[in-house]
Amino acid sequence: MKTLLTILAVGSLAAHIAEDSSGLLQHPKFQSSNFENILSWDSGLESIPGTVYSVDYKKYGETQWLAKEGCQEITRKSCNLTMETGDLNEFYYARVTAISAEGLPSTKVTERFNPLRHTTIKPPDVTCIPKMRSIQMIVHPSLTPVHTGDGHQLTLEEIFHDLFYSLELQINDTYQMVNVSPGSRAPIRLCSPPWVRPPHAASPPPDRTWT
């Protein structure tokens, strides 16, 4: 009789673990800008103090989940997976497991993430040099955390070959918008290839249409 009870107990425990007590954890998702890929999530409605979180990740199609070092049994609700998701053309998943103080787990998986498709572009760093009768605007190449096989750190311009910048000049109440490609000397407008999501712009151009 004892064995039967054990089986019943294990059975229900197994069912419990498999069942996703989603009260502890919700909305795990990647947020990416300039290829800095941050995983974040929210605590669930029933989340209680003492809940800790562990993060795993993998490439789509692979069987093995890999534990993210530095994001095991943490209390914060974000984890930097930039280094682990550095292949621009690859597709990734991440998984968060929340464990309550009583030891009950809840696991949620992100949507499929592709850095090239999902990253947004931040406005570039600009140095402004006023002169007697002109202003020189130097747009600095935006370095990304992406490296080539030989260790070269890529800029946005090297990733998006047809990237160009938009400079918006405000003279009294009038605006002037001009486009220029990196390396040239005319004023600039930030536009990216069609499949990249719109960026955050420090001073968004009035007309935000993307080709």
């Binding site: 993998k58 789509y60 199609g61 069987t63 597709f91 998986v109 949507e111 499929r112």
Partner: peptide, 19 residues
């Protein structure tokens, strides 16, 4: 339609258009 479609597929260990 991406989210709706990819939610239907919870086998993350198999990829048809693999490397």
């Amino acid at each position: 339609v991406k989210e709706t479609m990819q939610i239907q597929d919870n086998i993350t260990s198999v990829r048809l258009l693999q490397r």
